[in-house]
Design a protein around this nucleic acid. Sequence first.
RNA 1: GGUCCCAUCGUCUAGCGGUUAGGACACCGGGUUUUCAUCCCGGCAACAGGGGUUCGAUUCCCCUUGGGAUCACCA
Length: 471
Amino acid sequence: MTVRTRFAPSPTGFLHVGGIRTALFAWLVARQANGQFVLRLEDTDQKREVEGSAEHLRESLLALGLAYDEGPDIGGPYAPYRQSDRLESYRMWAQKLIDGGRAYADPYTPEELQAFRDEAKAKKRPFLYRNHRPKNPPAWDGTQALRFKSEPKDYTWHDEVMGELSTGPEVIDDIIIIKADGFPTYNFAHIVDDAEMKITHIIRGQEFIASQPNYLNIYEALGLTPPVFATMPHILAPSGGKKLSKRDGAKDVLDYLADGILVEALVNFIASLGWNDGTEQEVFSVDELIDKFSLSRVQRSGARFDEQRLVWLNGQWLRRLSLDDLYARSANFWPAEAAAASDDYKKQILSLVQDRIKTLADLRDMTSYFFTEPTPNESLISGNKQLKKLTPQERTDLLQAVHGSLEQSDFSPESLQTTLNTLLETTGQKPAILFGLIRVVITWAPFSPGLAETMALLGKDRTLARIQAAL
RNA sequence: GGUCCCAUCGUCUAGCGGUUAGGACACCGGGUUUUCAUCCCGGCAACAGGGGUUCGAUUCCCCUUGGGAUCACCA
């Protein structure tokens, strides 16, 4: 049987890291089995729908490389893939339940229902609708909610992540399957869709684990064989033990990319949040993930979102990139002054900073002196515990000597290094002072790449001019 | 409150009866003859508590504690 997994978000907002992990794992399961990955939009709650979020979801998945084989925009053998376009299916399956005496119209008003709930709460008992199941419900005319007539019983089932799970009959209830507005509830629609779309693995968050027995009851009533279930624990906020939410900084995945995080790093990070292959490997390519991922090794408890680890992984991936690849990805991250610079010049800069940037966005603050004349910042000298010891006269003498020697250099990195080493002897200064001073006056930046390489790239004219200006 | 799930360094985790409890991030030192990084070396740091089972428990069972999920005409 072909493995088919799906990602079924509701178009109610952006895709954050919690959601993307579910999507990633579903995608990995499909890919490693040479199966299909399906995108389905669960838009049965018209009130909550957010304009443009379907498109945003699509972009986010594609930006992360999680291409889907079937979906609302590309169609597929089980189209449509948008629940609001599938109302007839739900009607048909619901009718089967009605005909079999397993669904009935809910005669109560919202007020009456609320009264039942309040009563249960007052008694500190869980609310069960079936305790109030009407003896002779009216015929369902489509204007009332349609409820599933449950058959409470024990359940034990297997979950690929959680292992064996079991519950008693007290959690089974008569849940609503079609709302009074004619739309199905998630609880019903996803079962119908997964069956019709031949989904083999349902991978979703732990918020659904409590209703799982109710789903099993419906599968039985519908005569369907349940697919494989895999429940993912939540990703937790960095600070507390709470589920990661927007106010804890759960960013849109596209924001991470815009902030200079590489796709490889983001995918690697999200995958390793709650999963590992049992070895000491930390850095995984997508291909390695496809090869090695397994639901059974997913952690059962929630994992905190640790951004420092994401940044570290980003550095790992940044350093593995070829220069051309790095250059291609850096396009949107150069400082404004770089607009007129040549490809070749920018590539040379990248080769100097590749080992010291943490995100692509670092390029904006770390490379501007390669494109424009830096503004002298005296605090870089007064704040340096070596350089601040120099008197103004000593400083000038030193720079004068440097300037003199460099005028003789052809400015290749090798000869510059030789010249610098010779200066160390002729001036009798420590490297920390001599090189530190040169570095500061030619970049006026808190840090910079290797001195000889930096000077070589800046060229003789600019380097000498900046030293001259600091005299 | 009912039900269900979970529990190893600050964080992510390895471990599936016998280990000096391993790795990674972060942090703190040292090195790589300038800074900041990279890289390398070293250090700090954990089995929530209590009962069992066993020759022997981090590991298996029970209880306690703690955390999480859920109890919608949301998904």
